[in-house]
Design a protein around this nucleic acid. Sequence first.
RNA 1: GUGGAUGUAGCUCAGCUGGUAGAGCCCCGGAUUGUGACUCCGGUGGUCGCAGGUUCAAAACCUGUCAUCCACCCCA
Length: 447
Amino acid sequence: MSNLAQPPKGTRDFLPEEMILRRKVMETIRECFVLYGFVEIDSPVFEYFELLSRKCGEEIEKEIYTFEDKAKRKLGLRFEFTSPLGRYYATNREKLTKPFKRYTIGKVYRYENPQTGRYREFYQADADIIGSYSMNVELELLDLAIFTLTKLEMGSYEIILNNRKLLDGIVNAAGIGEGKKDAALRVLDKTAKIGEGGVIKEFKENGINEENYRSFMEFIKFDKGLADMEKLSILSKRLNKSVKDELVKNQAIEGAKELLSILENADAVGLDFIKYDPLLVRGLGYYTGPIFEIKSKDLSIGSFAAGGRYDNLVELYGTRPEGACGISFGVERIIDIIMQRDEKALQFLHSPVKLYIVYLSENERLYAYKATKTLRLKGISVELSVSASPNISKEIKYADKKKIEYVAIIGEKEADEKKLTVKNIKTREEKLITLEKLIELLNNNYI
RNA sequence: GUGGAUGUAGCUCAGCUGGUAGAGCCCCGGAUUGUGACUCCGGUGGUCGCAGGUUCAAAACCUGUCAUCCACCCCA
């Protein structure tokens, strides 16, 4: 294949069969968002680079696709929806009803090295709520996540939860200075992956002592079997004792309280997938409160949904501060997981087209056309053969390949009797019925 | 941005120490002019990722480059 015959690095073409699954997943997510009262908005795929790069963190900034327009304006492709949403909110605030609950499903772009579950162009599905500082927002978003994942039959996954304010307090208590906080957090986030030795090594590379690591770990050490809520209460007491800086201390204790409030209520609603993870950090620079990540328990594909609170981000875009929190679903990763797990189930996905109509000679063409039109007017999706010289064998094969469930055959016999022979592709059963009967059966999804 | 593996037909892959490319599946046609999963027969399809180099001769060896996968980095 020549270079021009392949899609650019990290991007993909999708075949019609693949689109059936993709569409289904995105539709399911969309329906769930709507069920929870989120409204859809749209905004440009590109924004001013300066807007995208604010508060996103140095690493992410390197991943932004940038370009200049003909008037030399510096632009960038959106790498996620949060900063575009901040800008959207700032520019349209007066016209929006608050709290503003919106969703967007669309493509985002990141200039990074592709791998499984990692592409340069990919879909994200975001739900955010701007205009409230209440933890009810977190609860609503987590409930939405669980609801959506259940609808998608995502199987075993877990939701891990932490809080940036709490994290800041513990880092402070561990004696790590403000200047080294971000580096420390970034390394701690990887603990599960690189182990204690790895963390200590990377701490040193960043000029942080092993002792600081030890005291951090000591701080979040609990007796075995302790429930998350008890851990958080204990943390509050420890923070109260160890943190000197009043502001940091109060913030951290508030962070613990926020998590406690989420967990208390989550427990009541039965959201028992949620676990407090003292080592969850998340890279994006704008998070200010609770943060969360959802990952598959049986596949190491990384997290497939994540989010958190980013209070007052909108202030950056010139409007007054507002509470805000959102969740983002990684559509590609969700699809990858479904495909890896359910290879067989995928065979049963069928086309949105219900029926394929074949007529055997020009004499039946008009009758077939009228039947097709009637069904379409009834809202039933129908494909009419366009073959010049229809061959039943080929036509059935065609319908099967396109995953259309039923084929209607119209020959001399059917046209004379004003009926259709309807074949179920999967069961191979056939029925000679009238158009009215066919409509009834298709509407009841039974034939 | 760094390191490793890989790149041969639409797909999965074979091709030994260099001698000019193969299988299975798929696809197309026929056996079968009103019925697709099996069987049989026949057929299409590859400048061996791309560009240079070494050689009488390169899919194979060398260099570069592009892409894919994996590990970092980071992340949905």
